[in-house]
């Protein structure tokens, strides 16, 4: 009894962390959707990794993907797929920022991100790596991650 009582907040913490990961994508996706797509296109171009057609396609499609992943992870609907999608996205961020750092691209001073992002690329890559790690842990602890989710509701119905 004692063990069950003390572990309840810990179990809920996994749900909170799931909502945290989902919120990152929700906020990021909304921010891009409510801004002209050209702003995000410029950010993608600054990484100098994709051909032009892929840059334009990514700028158009990526914010919607972020929004969808964010909403599904927060609601806990198809949570495992949502978290796998989140993991892939964090993995992409790490690779894209990492290659820019290795190539010494001038991301900080280029003006591409405007004034609203003050994070250094080194900080970004650390945060994305931590989020990627957290996503893996959430998938490992899936039984707890699923708590207070639509998945668990539909499992009971």
């Amino acid at each position: 009894m004692r063990l069950a009582h003390t572990s309840q907040p810990v179990n809920s913490m996994w749900c909170v962390l799931r909502i945290f990961i989902g919120s990152i994508f929700l906020i990021s996706g909304l921010g891009k959707l409510f801004s002209p797509y050209q702003n995000f296109l410029y950010v993608i171009q600054s990484y100098q990794i994709f051909p032009s057609w892929a840059e334009a396609l990514t700028a158009r499609v990526f914010p919607s993907i972020e929004l969808i992943v964010g909403v599904f992870v927060i609601l806990g609907l198809w949570t495992d797929w949502g978290l796998k999608g989140a993991g892939i996205l964090f993995g992409i961020f790490v690779i894209v920022v990492g290659q820019a750092l290795l190539r010494g691209l001038p991301l900080e001073s280029c003006g591409c991100f405007g004034e609203w992002i003050h994070l250094k690329p080194q900080t970004v890559i650390i945060l994305d790596s931590l989020n990627l790690l957290l996503t893996f842990v959430l998938l490992r602890k899936f039984f707890y991650t699923k708590k207070f989710s639509l998945d668990s509701y539909f499992d009971k119905v």
Partner: peptide
């Protein structure tokens, strides 16, 4: 909707970078 520079409007079409 401008957040970064340089941003251009070429014949009213927004172009960034």
């Amino acid at each position: 909707g401008i957040i970064s520079t340089p941003t251009y409007f070429i014949n009213n079409k927004m172009v960034v970078g």
